[in-house]
Each structure stands twice: as structure tokens, then as C-alpha cells.
Design a protein around this nucleic acid. Sequence first.
DNA 1: CCGAATCTTGACTGATTCACTCCGGATTGA
DNA 2: TCAATCCGGAGTGAATCAGTCAAGATTCGG
Lengths: 161, 161
Amino acid sequence: MRFTTQAEYGLICTLHLARFGAAGPVAAREMAEKEDLPADYTEKILRRLRQAGIVTSVRGVSGGFELARDAREISVKDVVEATEGSTFEINCRQHPVGAERCDTTHDCSIRPVWYALRTKIDELLDQIRISDLLEGGEVGVTELIDITWQDHGDTNLTMER
Amino acid sequence: MRFTTQAEYGLICTLHLARFGAAGPVAAREMAEKEDLPADYTEKILRRLRQAGIVTSVRGVSGGFELARDAREISVKDVVEATEGSTFEINCRQHPVGAERCDTTHDCSIRPVWYALRTKIDELLDQIRISDLLEGGEVGVTELIDITWQDHGDTNLTMER
DNA sequence: CCGAATCTTGACTGATTCACTCCGGATTGA
DNA sequence: TCAATCCGGAGTGAATCAGTCAAGATTCGG
Ligand code: FES
Ligand code: FES
């Protein structure tokens, strides 16, 4: 299970705007070049971010994109949902094993697992804001997340494997 | 982001063996028929479960599959990893945005988010055992998971949306 | 010891999704 | 006007998914 590149690119673009967008709108082409991403694809991602109300666009000669609100008010979940459509999709909804089997009227003891997982994923992604990723570099961000989420600290956020 | 049907089928099969496998090995064909799954595909899934050491197989006329150990010792994570290969794949490892950009020597403030998410996912899936899914039906399982994981209870395990 | 039932392995296939491009059009500032 | 930008959507090659199929190995009953 993984996110597509759209989530990654979406975060990169949002982060780029949070860093360099204060002085005025940033053109998609320029952003793509600076971040070394495919230009046309970047444009498409930005369009999705705009449709979700995360960024605003300015058309015309010196147009481009800006964050629609403060970086503290934009969560990773917002960006992921905007780009991917959803965070974690419940299989038995969109890709049911069997029509009747996966119907809500039928009892399934596996279903609660996916719902619980989705809740966990959404909780974490919603808690992390774009502003959290702006300072401290990779180490700083890791520590910040680690502090916030050390409730069930059986495993830790090392990069082992 | 979603799991493929293999994770779902893997859980269904494991659960089936936990329920009906006490009396001796269950044939793949028989299991597929009872659970209403494609026969050949079921066989393939069971192979993966065996390769991961979750079930054992008996060849020959009255052969079939059995759980390799107690249902309390098999976590949902075990089954998902056996069938899908991994729970949550870090994009920048297998599908890097850019070769140098995603190298560990470079600083990336997005990376910690994915590592934290993987940790969360693994924690939850590892805590839930096959034995937890055997009793209480859907409602019972939901309550059980809810009690175990109500640490960050901002959201709850309702089925809304 | 033969043959039926079962697991084992791996190749194969159609459908879908992914990652990305391309094109024609609308909007704006110089 | 024209050049730069955003906008929408169609199109494309590659990869993955979901599932099938065929050929072989193992075991047991008779
Ligand atoms: S198998 Fe679809 S809801 Fe359980
Ligand atoms: S974009 Fe790949 S590691 Fe951050």
C-alpha cells in the first residue's frame, strides 16, 4: 500500500509555496523547474490543490499560485485528500469482494479493522500541518512528530529496514 | 491509498482456518467455495500465507491447509505483509521522486511524515490478532478495537461517509 | 502400484491505474 | 496585440491488479 506521486508532489508544491510564496504568486513552470518536477504534471497537481481550496491562482502574465490560507491551517491530510482523492480507501466500498457480502446489512468482522486504520491514518495526517514541516529540517520534523505521537511508543520513528 | 484484494482474501482465509480448521486441514477448493472466492486465486493466496509461515499445507488426497500457530499469535499485520509484501511502502524508497533528492544523504522534511505514518499503521495492525476477530461479530470487534485504541479519541470508529 | 485428490510453480492475460504529455482555449498585463 | 500564464480534458505507454491455466509433485485408498 502506498500513496501515488501526486501526494508527494502535492506536498512538495504546497511546501514550496509556504517557503517562497510570500512575495507574490509563483508560476507553475518556475516551481517545477526549481523543484525539478515534470512541468505539465506539476500544473495538473496545482490545479487539484486549487480545486480543493488549498491554493489560489492568478492568471495572466505575472500570475501563478499562492497558499489560500496560513500554513498552520493546512494539514498533510488536506493535501493528500486533494491530490489522491482520499487517504485510505475502504476496499469493501469501492472494490467489494462480493455484492451482498460487503453490504452494510451483513456482518463482517474484518471491516472494523479497516475503519480503525482509516481513523488512525486520518488522525495523524490531520495533526501534521504544513507549518510543522518548514523548520528544523528532517531531524527537527522527526523530533516534533515523535514528541506529538509517542503515546504508543512500542516502535519508534527510526529509518531501520 | 488502499490494500489490494489479496490482503482481504488473506484475512478471510486465515479467519476461515481459525474457525473451521481445528478438525483437520481444509482444502483450498472447499474453502474458496464456502467463502465464495475465485478458486485458483484462493490457492495462490494460501501459497503466500504458507511461504510466510502463517499456515501449513498437507498434500495428498485429504490434504489442505491449517494455521501454523495459535490465532492469538497471528496478527493482521502478519497476514497483510504476507499477502501484500508490505503494509505501507515509503514512496521515496521504491519510487523516488528524484535519485539524489530522495537519497538518505539529502534532507527532506516530508520523509518523517511517511515514516511516522508507517509506524502508526504497523502498530495498529500488529496489535490486532486473528483471535480478536473470532468473537463478538462486527459490533464486538469494533468495540474491542475502540477500547484498545481510544488514546487519541478525536475521531471515532463510526462508519460515517 | 494405479489413480484420484490435493498442493506447487510459474507463465499468461485482460482490465485498470499510474505517471505523464499534449493541445486548444481563456485570462491578464505590457 | 501578444506573450505569459492558468485551465480543462483527452491521450499514451508502462506498471500493477485480479484472476486463469497448464504441467508437475505428493499422498492416500484400494
Ligand atoms: S469482506 Fe467486504 S466487508 Fe468484509
Ligand atoms: S521527496 Fe523523496 S525523500 Fe522527500
